[in-house]
């Protein structure tokens, strides 16, 4: 088809994407805007010199850094079961995860609140069993937020791993077994390395999800445990300091891009078949 036809076809999407790109560029400019139409880096200076705001950035990284591996540890076995179990189990797990995937995070976070609250199922069960004599504080703190950040992005972890895992050549595992590797070593030396592209994809998705989470700290933190996304919203909409909000946004965006860049460079080694 001709170039003219192609240009016409992509025109509507280009128009929409142009707005998106312009908006991002404008945010970049806003972050350097000082009073009276002058430019300055004062918002960035403020951000790095104020331990209060740096603390939120650090907190978001810290939580993402420990929640993501837990999601991986929980999600990988699920993908493994999905790839190997009977079609009934596979369908059940797929349905469950797709329903989760398509259910609003507001609702899923709310559901976790009903489980972890003072009057929630966990505390009532513990009280009824006499394990504790007054309710544990399981939410409105870091614990509650972390639980939601481990559980809610589960589909992002399971799907990429599953889609790689189900295409692993079964003969490779059979070959490894025939060469005398036991089950654990077959997994560790053959299966797992082959699924690294899926693992890398899942880890990146979940890490970025955790890093930029807004709803989970908003509901399970209840305002007592904000993360960086909440700070950006507050600066932009409550404090009405758009430039400062833009500066934090740019830092978060650059961090996101850096994570993506580093993992694609690192991950590319596994995405390609080994040379030799």
């Amino acid at each position: 088809m001709s170039r003219r036809a192609a240009a016409l076809l992509v025109l509507p999407a280009i128009a929409v994407l142009a707005v998106f790109v312009a908006a991002m560029a404008l945010t970049g400019l806003t972050s350097f805007a000082a009073d009276a139409g002058r430019w300055s880096v004062k918002h960035y200076v403020r951000l790095v010199s104020d331990s209060h705001y740096l603390g939120y950035l650090w907190r978001s990284f810290r939580i993402a850094a420990y929640c993501t591996p837990i999601t991986l540890l929980l999600g990988y076995p699920v993908a493994l079961v999905m790839a190997t179990a009977s079609s009934g189990v596979r369908l059940g797990l797929t349905l469950l995860l797709v329903v989760q995937f398509f259910t609003s995070y507001v609702i899923r976070a709310y559901a976790l609140m009903l489980v972890l609250g003072n009057n929630g199922v966990v505390n009532r069960a513990l009280l009824a069993l006499g394990v504790v004599d007054q309710p544990l504080t399981l939410m409105y703190n870091e614990f509650g937020v972390a639980v939601s950040l481990v559980l809610l992005p589960m589909p992002f972890m399971v799907f990429p791993i599953y889609s790689v895992l189900k295409n692993v050549e079964p003969n490779l595992e059979a070959a490894a077994t025939s060469l005398g590797a036991d089950r654990l070593r077959v997994f560790w030396h053959v299966t797992f390395p082959l699924t690294l592209p899926g693992v890398v994809a899942g880890v990146v998705l979940v890490f970025l999800f955790d890093l930029t989470a807004y709803i989970m700290p908003g509901l399970l933190g209840g305002g007592y445990f904000d993360m960086v996304a909440n700070v950006i919203y507050d600066q932009a909409m409550e404090v009405r300091d758009q430039s400062f909000a833009a500066a934090i946004s740019m830092v978060l965006l650059v961090a996101t891009l850096a994570v993506l860049y580093l993992t694609t460079r690192w991950g590319a080694r596994y995405a390609e078949p080994p040379r030799e």
Binding site: V19, F20, L26, T27, T212, Y233, S249
Partner: peptide, 13 residues
Amino acid sequence: VPQVVLGMSLLIF
């Protein structure tokens, strides 16, 4: 692009 950043950028635009 993080959702907060996208929303805020569009607001600014």
